[in-house]
Every structure is written in C-alpha cells, then in structure tokens.
Write a protein that binds this DNA or RNA. Structure first.
Lengths: 224, 224
DNA sequence: CCAGAAAATTAGTTACCCCTAAAACAAGAT
DNA sequence: ATCTTGTTTTAGGGGTAACTAATTTTCTGG
C-alpha cells in the first residue's frame, strides 16, 4: 500500500487535506505558502495529481483543488503516520511537544506499515497526538475531537484545552510555559473587542495570560 | 552536520566504506551490484563525489575509489545511524533480527542528530547491533570486534558466535532457527575439504548443523 | 464596465539520479 | 604483439521536482 507515492506527493496530499478542512478547497497560493515552494511548482504538481492513474485530486483551472476519495485515503494514511510518530517521539524518546512535529515530518514518509502497526500497539492505539489532533484509526476513521474555537469564548466561560493546531516551536513553548496544554482547564476572565484579545486564567496557575486572535484561533476547547 | 548529502550520496558512501574494508578499494562494478544500479550510474555518481566541495572520494579512472577523510567521516556517521536504529527496532519495537535491516536502511537517512542521541541514550550507548556489527561511537571510533572468520575453524575448535555479516532475511531466519545468533557458543564437529562445509554443534542444541562456505564466510567468531 | 491588483498558469531551466547502448581501456591468453 | 574478455567510461535520454520570468485569468473598486 505504501511506496506508491513520492515524498513530495505525500506532502502535497497532506497539505491539501488540511487546507480543505478549513477552506473547503485548497488554492494554489495557499498550498505554495504551506509547502514553501513557488506557486508555479504547485500548478505543476497539481496537474500530476489530477492526471494520476486513479486521480488524487479534482482540478479546475484557477479554482484550486479538492481531494478525490483515493487522494483522501492516501492523505489520511500519512496523517496517521505523522500523529502516531509525534506521540511515539514524546512517549518513548522524551521529545517535548514543540520538537515532535519536525522530526515526524521526515519520518512519516519512510516508515513501513509494520512500523506504524508496532508503534500503534506500543502506544495502546491512541486517539490523539501531543497537540490533541485526532489520530486516524487503522481503518482511517477520524476520532471525535473538539471543534469549538477558543476565540469564540467570552468572559466567565469555563472549559478545557483540547487541541492546539499550530506547529511553530516558539509558540508551542510559550503555550506550555503558561500551562496551555491539553487537557488544562481554564476560565476566560477578559476580552477586548477591538483586537479580540482574550484573558485566560488556567486552573492552578497564579498568573493570567492574554492571548491574541492569532493564537486563540488555533486553539480548540470543550466548554464546561 | 546532516542534510549535507542526498540519500543517494549517503548510500554510495556507506557502500564504498563497506567494500573498502574487505577489498581496500571499491570498484565500479562492485558498487553497482551492491546498490542495484547500472555501472554507468556509478561512474556518474563517483564523479560527483570526487568533485564535491571537500572531495568525498579519491578517484582514478579504471581503478575504483577510496574514501577521503571527509568521506569516511560521513560514512561512519551513517553507519552509526543504521546500527543504532537496528538495535532500537529490536529492543523497543520487538522487531526480529531479520527485519531490522530493511527498516533501518530507510530511516538512517532522515533521523536528526537529536534522534540519534536519544536512542543511543535509551539503549545505554550500545557497542554492537543485533548482528554483532560494531556501532561507531559518538566520536566515530569503531569499537573492537571479532575478525576471525568461522570458515577458518576446523573440527574440535570451540568458540562463540560474535557477528553475522549478512542482511538476507531468509538466511538470518535460518540461522536463528538453528540457534546461530551472537553470543551462542559452539564446537566444530566436522569439515569437508572439497566444498568447505563445516558441521557445527551449538551448545544446548540437539541437532548439529552443516554450513556451506557461502554462510561460514559471513560469520565471525571468537575462538575459545 | 473597465482598469488595476491579485492569483494562477505557461514556458523554459536546472539539478538529481537513474537508464541503455556503444566506445575505450586493462590485462591475461595465444 | 595481438586478441579477447571483462570492466569502465562516454554519450544521450528520461522522470521528478524545484526554480524564474512572462503571460493569462479572475476578482474587485471606482
């Protein structure tokens, strides 16, 4: 089942999957930004993906792409690798949550199905990675996960941190330094309308912390 | 220090290092056979390696190549990755010794120095992989290891299996099925001059086993 | 509605790493 | 000294995946 795709193709599929979740479609520019390549390179690759033996994306010029069923299956398979690896690196090798992403990004393309299976078993078939992202199951279902964005909460709302959708190590260190890690519980104590800043009081902490929208839009929570 | 080289370059360096150990030099054809590529491809890559910014090999037309000091350092670094990974796969994920090589061959090119360091520490800075090959130290020294070939022993010689230099899974399963795994001890009970077959009685086993030269030349032992 | 900005595509290169076919070389046999 | 065999190199080519530069399409404001 693996080794069908090049590393580059896998990266594109993963990126398109991710962008489609929030935007419905993935545009050339968006993909280019995430993958750090020129837009022209994306156009070229999109044509390959659309022209593959079973097409992996549906492509309409100037309108971006959506994954086909085949493309979606491949993407989820890679995401399972990635998230299992992240948890494995943390649990077995003592990586911190800001370090796991970069290493998993390289390993995800080369591990065998056997390796995947073994770490899944060692970890006890986990459902979420260190960032709280759901780990697709063996049959590629996505486990239930929080979809309520922290940015939508207001003062006096209480809840639990469930997921941090960001891979910037600096930001992740900042957040864990302030106790903002799943499954911390918290109370919103402040909100400034113009800039969207939220003040959070994490349970068991002295200092409250103020977070801008750039951050609160990346954090998903469960309301109490 | 890593990411200087492509996967292909790393494979060539590793192969040249290995061939140089037994043959002094590595010829184009030998390299081509090991890497399963056409001889012409090897000539091309050799030129790249010899023309690199610090040259990685010394190249004389029609005479094969030797690694430069820079090339040797790079090769040993990769071999350290490979052998640490093999042991890690066996110890941590329960791989059998015939499965570790193939997986390590892919992983060795993508793990970070940090990953290397972490598995080395988890394993307690081991000196040998599951096959008994020495694992280069952090400063790239090769630990002492057996150099006496089993094929040189004769009836009534006793010794200990120290190293099996072969990666064929079928052969490795055959050997472990017969208890021929480091550090098993044994007595040579027979020898046929014409074909070089040796009969081995492994301590603690009922059945003796007859091994051809194809096999005994790949096994290194310590004589009692 | 149309001009200019933004987004996307085409065209043309480059680098990597493999291939086949054919020519050149090395070295022992005649 | 030449032939023959096997090894090695040259020449030419293909696929992947990136790039820049120039062009085309789409969107948006006046």
């Amino acid at each position: 089942m693996r080794d069908q795709f090049t590393h580059a193709i896998e990266d594109y599929l993963k990126t398109i999957y991710d962008l489609s979740l929030t935007h419905g479609r993935a545009s050339t520019t968006q993909i280019a930004e995430v993958l750090n390549v020129a837009p022209a390179s994306v156009t070229g690759m999109i044509k390959r993906l659309a022209g593959a033996k079973p097409p992996l994306v549906e492509y309409q010029k100037h309108r971006g792409v959506v994954l086909t069923q085949d493309g979606k299956i491949a993407a989820i398979e890679i995401i399972r690798h990635h998230r299992l690896l992240e948890l494995f690196l943390q649990e077995t090798l003592g990586y911190s949550w800001d370090e796991v992403h970069a290493e998993a990004d390289r390993l995800e393309h080369v591990i065998s199905e056997d390796f995947e299976e073994r770490i899944a078993r060692v970890l006890g078939d986990p459902t979420h990675n260190p960032h709280g992202d759901p780990i697709p199951t063996r049959d590629l279902e996505i486990p239930p996960h929080a979809t309520l964005c922290l940015s939508h909460l207001r003062p006096n709302d209480r809840g639990t941190i469930r997921r941090v959708r960001d891979t910037d190590p600096e930001l992740l260190r900042f957040l864990s330094d302030h106790g903002i890690v799943p499954p911390a519980s918290f109370t919103v104590t402040g909100y400034t309308p113009f800039d969207g800043n939220l003040t959070l009081q994490i349970n068991g902490r002295d200092q409250a912390v103020v977070l801008g929208m750039r951050i609160t839009q990346q954090i998903y929570v469960e309301r109490e």
